[in-house]
């Protein structure tokens, strides 16, 4: 069966959107699929907006750049404002409801509200909100198995932060659980 998924992941610089983009694409590769990951930076090195696009497919990938994505992870309000209108009808978006107003969700698309910052706080580190959001995305789309994403953490997180890997895996799980509860 042919599989195809694409997602734009967007947020503030520093929210770790590039890291979860890398992690998702890496997990796709580990799952035996074709993947592309392409980052788009603002001109500033710190504190600007950032987004990346990941494509996961069972056949060779044409465009790595997606104008009308099937899915979106919006880590902050400007990201939702910018990318939600571009989404395909019936697409899936994960919004970080800690920073994004769920009332602005377009009924054209399926929206999962995930208070990623609060959930990450509960695990002990707000900075893992990105992992919560990715866990939610994986649960909502089934793009790649969650356990492959968890196993890929060791390959994507630099060895300097390897002690944080178990907590990151917890954050992925918590995001997935949050969406699973909404899906029921």
């Amino acid at each position: 069966m042919s599989l195809y998924q694409d997602v734009i992941i967007a947020g503030f610089g520093g929210q770790g959107v590039m890291l979860i983009g890398n992690l998702l694409a890496y997990a796709g590769m580990e799952a035996g699929l074709e993947v592309t990951y392409i980052p788009v930076y603002g001109p500033e090195m710190r504190g600007g907006t950032a987004n990346c696009t990941v494509v996961i497919s069972s056949e060779d990938i044409g465009s790595p750049i997606i104008q009308r994505p099937k899915s979106l992870i919006a880590m902050n309000q400007p990201s939702m404002d910018k990318f939600q209108p571009r989404m395909q009808d019936g697409g899936i978006q994960i919004i970080n409801s800690s920073l994004v107003d769920p009332a602005l969700a377009d009924p054209r698309v399926i929206t999962y509200s995930v208070p990623a910052n609060e959930i990450a706080d509960g695990i002990g580190n707000t900075r893992m909100a990105n992992m919560v959001a990715l866990g939610a995305y994986v649960q909502a789309t089934g793009a790649v198995p969650l356990d492959v994403v968890k196993k890929s953490l060791t390959s994507v997180i630099s060895s300097h932060y390897s002690h944080l890997i178990p907590k990151n895996a917890d954050a992925l799980q918590a995001g997935a659980d949050h969406v699973a509860a909404q899906m029921r």
């Binding site: 590769m29 074709e34 993947v35 592309t36 990938i61 790595p64 750049i65």
Partner: peptide
């Protein structure tokens, strides 16, 4: 820039 900055297996 696309070929250079993109990541793929």
């Amino acid at each position: 820039a696309i070929v250079g900055q993109m990541k793929e297996p």
